[in-house]
Design a protein around this nucleic acid. Structure first.
Lengths: 354, 354
DNA sequence: CTGTTAGCGCCTTCAC
DNA sequence: GTGAAGGCGCTAACAG
């Protein structure tokens, strides 16, 4: 029924081994032989049996990309960039030569699913895995991750972090690209302080996530440096990285005594919800309340007014992670790189009224 | 080095065959034996060798989800919903039992990559494939797709379309879920006509895409029914499904003679660009120019003014496609379902000034 | 440069 | 309910 390598060999009048060599291009083969084999492949419409190949070679051409939320462009942009580096340009024939199969796996932010996907990829003998996004800070989960990643690395899977802080005490991860969330949040807060804001509300992300903590820490560093510590608790609200969290948290902040003059959001999506809440309270942005986001997703420039935010080079980071996963690029010294965040000042922030 | 099924069998003092049966749960095994085997699996930290398993069983637990643009929430939402139906809830142990590995593949809208990914999935003996988003209308590519899908189906891969019109004359596709793009665009245009608009600009998607054509056709149907045909060409501009296309095309429309009073965009992202262009021309939305989008992505309600658009139930469609791919749900009669689109009237459309 | 020979690790009849 | 044996399709040493 299905045509095998042996069929191709018979048609091309060579041995199966030769066909294998032609297909993998790892050994020298005479041009005339190669042509004959390739012709047979086309004539028979042969498609390599991946599982058989992976079994024999003890490695597959699968590369996994783990993301927290595939519906969030933050991850989509990174994953897309990584995937295009991994998948290669394709030869336009649709024939699929030595390409890797770059696949993205959506953990939904769940630690269990994160581990499950890693096991599934381990089962498939994946060639590499790119793990994107912040990590959960639960010690048990971190230990489980470290153990799982060590096993993957042992089995020859190359592991790259993208937008995630490095794993302490582990050499399983070939390279870690971390965003400077702390520095970005600090600069953003400094920007508001320079404008004259003193009471700044902070809509933070979910607890126990590195991204959340780093951004919050950067914010508080700047506040403390300005001598404005003390009100942290009453000015911070935690919630998921989504629009309604921004809306609800901002309503909460606006209703508390001692009105805030600015709201910093965990990310741009949250900021959109914050903007909506501010408006629904009959307040103007930025005249009455300044609002800022984080990430600089594509839609942020089209918010009205355009959102002040912190730009992360998501596409560049994703592409680099993809190249690292493919071994096309040498890991940075120590395996760790911090990627700078750039403050983008736009119309949603201004000096407070007073 | 790596622990195999035989190791587990030895530890559990049973035969490899029994271990296999326990793991796959397809044959009756005595409870006591099963427990012994499972304990050995845990103790040895055994992970099934996917390729070996797939080779022997002639099928894998891989399920592919093809998307045009992973950075676009339109696809992210569908893919995420499909993936959570396919991946199953997980058992919280991270142990990975009989789960499928749902993976999303980003074609970038390129026909070559679409075919390449299908070949790669064929090579992996994927259990199922979900193809999302509109199709390219090039006859050669359609024929190539039909041929490739037929081969996949032959090899036992279940194929489901989600948000894509059915393939004519082909029984390779087990089920097609198509959006009513035509009807949605018609209703949206009728809404503008009822408001009193007569000159309506249309920023269409890329040429030769079913989605583009269907939406455009629906729009023109409504225009024609209102006796407003004739100006089609001068009122339509094509471009990719992105923000800058909406911006540029709208600038173009606004500069042409006989100013439009409304701009319909191919989708919400394009509409965002259109809004920016309108504003940059010193015009107000909706007082001077009405703007509307399509899809009702999450950010659309937060545009200022909120975007009038057409809602597609992306998550529901994706989830259903996932269930169909898993065989959890029976395909509709004839294998084809059209999913309704709902008009969402918001602040970005109003009666024209005149 | 090319053919031959062994497995890779698991599933699946077939017996018991 | 369980064990034994063959083979899935390919790759990777070896020879030659």
């Amino acid at each position: 029924m299905t045509v095998t390598l042996a069929d191709v060999a018979a048609r091309a009048r060579v041995s199966p081994a030769t066909v294998s060599r032609v297909l993998n291009g790892n050994y020298p083969v005479a041009t005339s032989t190669r042509d004959r084999v390739l012709r047979a492949v086309d004539e028979l419409d042969y498609v390599l049996n991946g599982p058989a190949s992976s079994l024999a070679a003890a490695t597959s051409d699968l590369v996994g990309i783990l993301v927290n939320d595939i519906a969030d462009p933050f991850f989509g942009i990174m994953a897309g960039a990584a995937q295009s580096e991994i998948g290669g340009p394709g030869d336009g024939s649709g024939r699929a030569g030595g390409e890797k199969l770059a696949v993205v796996c959506n953990t939904g932010g769940s630690p269990e699913r994160e581990l499950t996907y890693l096991t599934l990829l381990q089962r498939q003998r994946a060639a590499a895995v790119v793990v994107t996004g912040g990590a959960l800070e639960d010690p048990d989960h971190q230990a489980a991750m470290a153990a799982k990643l060590a096993k993957l690395a042992d089995a020859g899977t190359r592991i790259v972090f993208c937008g995630r802080p490095p794993l302490p005490d582990s050499d399983a991860v070939a390279a870690s690209l971390a965003f400077d969330n702390r520095g970005g949040a600090r600069r953003l807060t400094e920007h508001l302080l320079e404008l004259g804001h003193r009471r700044i509300g902070y809509v933070a992300g979910p607890l126990e996530r590195t991204t959340t903590r780093h951004r919050l820490e950067g914010h508080r560093e700047a506040m403390r440096a300005a001598g404005l510590s003390g009100d942290e608790e009453s000015l911070t609200v935690h919630g998921p990285y989504d629009r309604s969290s921004g809306y609800d948290a901002t309503c909460e902040l606006l209703s508390r005594e001692g009105t805030v003059t600015a709201v910093l959001a965990a990310n741009d999506t949250v900021a959109l919800g914050a903007c909506a809440a501010v408006r629904d309270h009959g307040l103007r942005i930025p005249e009455d309340v300044s609002v800022a986001g984080f990430d600089d997703l594509p839609f942020s420039v089209d918010a009205v007014p355009a959102l002040t935010t912190v730009r992360l080079p998501l596409a560049e980071a994703g592409a680099r992670a993809g190249r690292l996963a493919m071994g096309k690029e040498k890991p940075p010294a120590g395996g760790i790189t911090t990627i700078e965040a750039e403050l983008m000042v736009r119309g949603s922030t201004a000096a407070p009224r007073g």
